[in-house]
């Protein structure tokens, strides 16, 4: 048996060595972690317009992501009244840089509608056509789901979507991210019926309306319902701004 003093000494030495080692490692890798996080979400944003990029999205490199973001994408932050929020105002709310990419979506999602900041990305294709990418967020079966929705410049036709999730079941709910064929269904769907906002509905058992509905995922009804709700609520938040753009 060791004496209490020697136990204390051992524990103290050990804790300080361990803490130092980890702090050192954490500091060394911190910048890499941050760029990884940033690139991951930028990549998801580009995923919504994968078909319109000049390069193959499935093999896109980190540098290419940064390059497209730097040269072809304009970042705007809007609010639910349809006004642009200037960068300084965004920075005041605690987001460094004030760009759309710095906005913490999970945090904004919990705020009441009139305080919410809504990031918007405008992508200009090589032929000059513009695409508007919105961020939406909702709840799946187990935890949060979120996604990017790209609209064509009629602000009505969906040009593409990309979804992600925190903890959906692999093979079922996780298909919203993994099943590329399912995600492709959204392309070309419309969100407006004349002037009335309709959003896109994920229909269990197969789409009944060719313009406003897509097929569900078998075995993942709740996640699919979550997607429907997320789209209806999320796109509606941008509506005032979209209305202004439509003129």
């Amino acid at each position: 048996m060791h004496s209490t003093a020697s136990v204390m000494r051992f524990v103290l030495i050990m804790t300080s060595i361990v803490a130092m080692l980890l702090a050192f490692l954490q500091n060394g890798l911190k910048s890499k972690h941050d760029t990884n996080e940033a690139i991951y979400s930028k990549k998801a944003t580009l995923g919504a317009i994968a078909n319109h990029l000049s390069i193959d999205y499935s093999q896109i490199s980190d540098e290419q992501v940064e390059e497209i973001f730097g040269s072809k994408i304009k970042q705007i932050v809007v609010n639910s009244d349809g006004e642009k929020v200037p960068e300084e105002k965004v920075e005041e709310k605690g987001y460094k840089g004030g760009l759309a990419e710095s906005v913490d979506l999970a945090k904004e999602h919990k705020k009441p509608l009139d305080e919410k900041l809504l990031p918007l990305y405008v992508f200009t294709k090589d032929d000059g056509k513009e695409y508007y990418i919105l961020n939406v967020r909702g709840k799946g079966l187990w935890d949060a789901i979120w996604g990017c929705v790209a609209l064509e410049d009629d602000f009505n036709t969906i040009a593409g979507v990309s979804y992600d999730h925190k903890a959906e079941t692999p093979g079922l709910g996780a298909e919203i991210k993994d099943n590329k064929a399912w995600v492709k269904q959204f392309i070309g769907k419309k969100i407006y019926d004349g002037d009335v906002f309709r959003s896109v509905y994920v229909r269990k058992g197969g789409a009944k309306d060719p313009v406003y509905e897509v097929d569900g995922i078998s075995g993942a009804t709740i996640t699919a319902d979550g997607v429907s709700k997320m789209l209806a609520k999320g796109i509606a938040e941008y509506e005032p701004y979209l209305k202004k753009l439509r003129g």
């Binding site: 080692l21 980890l22 490692l25 954490q26 890798l29 890499k32 972690h33 990884n36 996080e37 690139i39």
Partner: peptide, 11 residues
């Protein structure tokens, strides 16, 4: 250590 390394090199 594994977690931090994965986060940096296999995100």
């Amino acid at each position: 250590v594994v977690e931090l390394t994965l986060k940096a090199y296999a995100f």
